[in-house]
Design a protein around this nucleic acid. Structure first.
Lengths: 194, 194
DNA sequence: GTCTATAAGATGATAGAC
DNA sequence: GTCTATCATCTTATAGAC
């Protein structure tokens, strides 16, 4: 049942895992080569420079996340449940070998990244804030979500909370740190049934 | 009026700024040497290995932050205002050349750090959660702060929100990203006068 | 497409003169 | 304490054989 996975994908998989655990500046082509079982030169054939690889990493990550967001949006469930599902996406990332959000990690290293990568990272966050803002507005209308102030500010606050909870929670061995903080954010947003 | 600042301090200052903007793995002794105007070997005299330097960085950062927390705690103001002051500390760090929280940056790179540094980073966060938990409990008693659930979970959530708001906000050029998210967190915690 | 070989430069770190 | 000089190793990247 073992699927054939092409080289470029295997390289991206290894690279993504390395970025999410150690950061973009902390891994080398040698690390990927060791994990995939090929030579460094072969990686350069598929991704000539490290920034090409980095760019491809974010593009794929954004595409996958965009699909998840679209799926959640289409689900027949209320806005609060959509937020729960959204938080679940982050929980899943973290539970997978204590991975940090790829773009959260890139955000930390932002100043050292080539321009093409910076723009992708900014696009990721802008996209998520826009998605969250829409869901929060829907939640207010349908009275399944509660908050004060603008939906956009609340979206920024929630996104910040989740990225920060991954960041800090990852520095501890216990997985519960993230879960406690994230649960607190969700409960706060839940409208009490009237 | 120019004070004499000793070499070890000048080295720490340069190193701290480099970590807060680029990360621990992205700067080298050569970068510090260029900024301070000395040679690489001189840095090794004061801090033999990079991990010695890293450790000294966190110890100083924790000490300074601890002094700030003690000062805020002693102020004659209500618990909500203490939280405002706490948020102000992060705002100040970020406004200083878009610096990320030193320990937030280290948290991202956690897996690549030597054990001695890891423990310092964990200690930093544990200390802040403990301080926030106490203030949040006081706020609930004195009715200046409002939240549901345990004070500790709320403390984790706030700390995560602030670290995350710095992380994401820093990836944009605009300073307002952090301010909007942080303001949202504060307003949410403020008890309405009865 | 993948390999070996190699380049050119950066990295953390040390020895020893001053 | 700071310097020059040097080290071994690692880094991204390329040339060319297979």
């Amino acid at each position: 049942m073992q699927e054939h996975i092409d080289r470029p994908t295997l390289i991206l998989n290894a690279a993504q895992s390395l970025v999410q655990t150690q950061g973009y500046n902390a891994f080398s082509y040698a690390d990927i080569a060791a994990r995939v079982g090929i030579r460094k030169a072969s990686i350069h054939y598929h991704y000539p420079s490290k920034s090409d690889l980095g760019k491809a990493l974010i593009v794929r990550y954004r595409t996958r996340f965009r699909q998840d967001l679209t799926l959640i949006k289409q689900e027949r469930c209320n806005a609060f449940h959509k937020l729960e599902r959204y938080v679940g996406l982050y929980s899943t990332v973290l539970q997978n070998e204590h991975h940090m959000c790829l773009c959260g990690m890139f955000a930390a290293e932002m100043e050292t990244l080539p321009q093409a990568m910076k723009e992708e990272v900014q696009g990721f966050f802008a996209e998520h804030v826009a998605w969250l803002t829409a869901v929060l507005e829907e939640g207010l209308r349908t009275k399944t979500v509660t908050y004060n102030g603008s939906a956009e500010a609340e979206a920024q606050s929630l996104l910040a909370g989740l990225e920060g909870a991954m960041l800090v929670g990852r520095s501890y061995a216990t997985a519960s740190w993230f879960e406690a903080a994230a649960h607190q954010m969700l409960v706060r947003l839940q409208a009490s049934p009237s």
